[in-house]
Design a protein around this nucleic acid. Sequence first.
DNA 1: ATTATGATTGACCGGTCGGTCATAGTTACG
DNA 2: CGTAACTATGACCGACCGGTCAATCATAAT
Lengths: 202, 202
Amino acid sequence: MTDRSIIIIFMSPRSTKQFEEIRENSRAKILDAAFELFARQGFHATSINQIAQQAGVAKGLIYNYFEKKEDLMHAIVLDGLQKSAEVMGTIQQAQPGKDRLRAMLEFTFRFLSEHAEYNRLMAALALQIQAFPELADIVTGKYNAMVPMLEEELTIAGHPYPERHAWMLAAILDGLGVQTAVLGNSLQLERLKQELIEEYCT
Amino acid sequence: MTDRSIIIIFMSPRSTKQFEEIRENSRAKILDAAFELFARQGFHATSINQIAQQAGVAKGLIYNYFEKKEDLMHAIVLDGLQKSAEVMGTIQQAQPGKDRLRAMLEFTFRFLSEHAEYNRLMAALALQIQAFPELADIVTGKYNAMVPMLEEELTIAGHPYPERHAWMLAAILDGLGVQTAVLGNSLQLERLKQELIEEYCT
DNA sequence: ATTATGATTGACCGGTCGGTCATAGTTACG
DNA sequence: CGTAACTATGACCGACCGGTCAATCATAAT
C-alpha cells in the first residue's frame, strides 16, 4: 500500500486544494442556475438541459456533482435552511420578548424582499412536499416549530393573547410569502412591516 | 340551404339533448381527473396519459373537449372561481359588518377543510401564475379585491384599525391555505376559526 | 339491414426528457 | 514530452411527452 499523500504531491497535476476550488466553483454555478430556474418555473417545468445552459456548463457535468435532478432541489433547500438557521442563531442573542420579536420580523421582511425567489421556491415546495419525501420531515418540522417559538416571545413581551396571536402571526408571515410571490413588489412590504412592529412590538 | 333542424330531427341517431348529456358527462369525468391530479402532483408533473387513465377514457378523447393541456387548467380554475363567486354573492346578503365578516370566515374555513385540494391547486397556480398568462389578470384581480373588501367590513364593524387589520386578515387566510396544504388536517381549523371570530367578530 | 351522426379509440408522430459514458481537455510533475 | 489525475464535454439512449387522426363503435330513424 503506497502512501497516498506522496502520490498526490508528486503525481497529481493540481493540488488537492486547487481541485476543491474548481469543484466548489462548478457546483455553485450549477446550484445557482438550478435555483433560479426552479424558483421561476418550478421543479418539473425546468429541464436539466436548461440548467446546464444557464450555468454555462455541459449537461453531463451536472451528473458529476449530483446523482439525480431531485438532488439539486435537496441541496438548494438544505443550503437555504442552514443559512436561515444561522441567522436565527444570531437573533437568539437579542433580548427575549419585544426586541427579539422585532429582530425576527425585521429578518423575515428583509428576507421576503431580498430573497423573494427563495421564498417562492419554498412555498412551491411546501405545496408539493410529498413529491420530495426526503425533505418532508425537515420542512414540516420547521413549520411546526414556528408557532411555539412565537408564542414564547409574545408571552415574554406581555401580549394579552399570546397563544391566539402566535398562530395568527405565523399565518400572516406565510401569507405574505404567498402574496409577494403573486403580487411581486406591488406589496408595500416596508409599510406592512412597520405596522406589524407597531402592533406586536410596542 | 336545407333546414338544419329538420335534418337533425330526422337523421340524427340521438337527440341533441342526448348528445349534450354525453358530452357533459365525458367532459366532467376528464375535468375531475385532471383536477385531482393537478392538485396532488402539480400541472407539469401530470401527463395527459395519466389524466386519461384516471378518467377512464382514451387520450384522444381529451382533445375532443380541450385544445391543449393548458385549457384543462383554465377550465378548472374558472369553474372554481365562478362557484366561489356565487357563494360570495349569497354572503353579500348578510348584514354588513360583523355578521358578514363572520359569514366570510365561516365560508373560508369550510372551504379550507372541505376543498383542501382546490385550495392547494390555487396556491400552486398563484406561485406560477406567469406560466398561465390568460389567468394572471383574473387571479391577481381577486387578490387585490380582497383587502379593500375586508377593510370595509372591519370599518363597519367598528374595528379600531381597519386598514392595518384588513391586510393582516387577508394574509392570515392565505397563510392558512399554505399551512393546511403542508400540515394537512393536523391543523385544528375549527379552533382557529373560533379564535378568529372571537378576535374580529365580537 | 342500412344509413347518418357524432362520440370514442389507440397506434402513431416528432420532440424532449432525465440520465449515461466514451472521449477530450487541462495541468504539473518526472 | 509523456503520463497521471482529474474536470468537462456532448452525442447518444430508451422512455415518455403533448398532440393527431384514420378507423371503430353506438345509436335510432328509415
